[in-house]
Design a protein around this nucleic acid. Structure first.
Length: 226
DNA sequence: GCATTAACCACAG
DNA sequence: CTGTGGTTAATGC
């Protein structure tokens, strides 16, 4: 495994950018880098939470097993921290994280992470910033799921992928229809039908897992209307 | 009641 | 894994 010294790492988080060279040395000593393949479980709901995890590169889905079905809460794209709420909120993970592409991660010990937050205000600010954005996403997600119908929820999921994850109207769906259903909160059958309807109405172009949003205006309207 | 919506089931490709 | 068709249950005119 390629070992990269934190100081020269080009995939640092905004928070790690605020560390001075002494702190970076400390980070190096408590940081372990590794790689996960697509489909690998990174950490598991209800298991003991041990580390802060930093995704250097790749996509990770955050999901929770509900009483009825699996729920995908969000997709995380590196470079970003992963699982801070579950690491500091409780000693048990409240959700699972699974790699949906090849993912490069660093495990950072809780103690080191905590020390930086105590001693470095800028570091703490960047972490707080991340957490707030995550919180806003969650509020939006709540409204989306509680008050919208199928088409609105799926439109929202597609816009989320295009705007937040890929920054492109044209992308390769990194998951199955079933998983997209878990994200948009509807059955896989509904996902199939709705995608085909969107295609029929020339809102999206669809070839297997390749999706191109043709009419973003209309898709946004469907998302807003519910 | 009737229409709409969406989940569930079953059966192909 | 995905698409399709029939069935069913809930909800709102």
């Amino acid at each position: 495994m390629l070992y990269e010294i934190c100081k020269y790492c080009h995939l640092k988080s905004a928070a790690a950018e605020t560390l001075d060279s002494d702190e970076l040395k400390k980070l190096e000593r408590s940081c372990f880098q590794t790689q996960f393949a697509k489909g690998d479980l990174i950490f598991k709901q209800d298991a003991l939470s041990a580390n802060v995890i930093f995704i250097r590169e790749g996509l990770v889905k955050i999901h929770i097993k509900g009483p009825e079905r699996e729920q995908i809460i969000k997709i995380n794209k590196g470079p970003t921290f992963l699982g801070i709420p579950t690491t500091f909120g409780d000693i048990i993970n409240h959700y699972s994280a699974t790699a949906i592409t090849t993912v490069d991660v660093c495990f950072i010990s809780n103690e080191t992470f905590q020390q930086f937050i105590y001693s470095n205000g800028k570091f703490a600010y960047e972490i707080l910033h991340d957490l707030c954005k995550c919180q806003l996403h969650t509020y939006n997600y709540c409204i989306n799921h509680l008050q919208k119908q199928g088409p609105g929820r799926l439109a929202d999921a597609l816009l989320y992928l295009a705007n937040e994850i890929f920054n492109d109207n044209n992308f390769l769906l990194p998951m199955t229809r079933h998983e997209l259903g878990d994200l948009a909160c509807c059955s896989r059958e509904s996902v199939s039908r709705l995608l085909n309807e969107f295609k029929k109405d020339n809102i999206i172009q669809l070839e297997g897992k390749k999706i191109t949003i043709l009419n973003k205006e209309l898709l946004s309207q469907i998302s807003k209307r519910g």
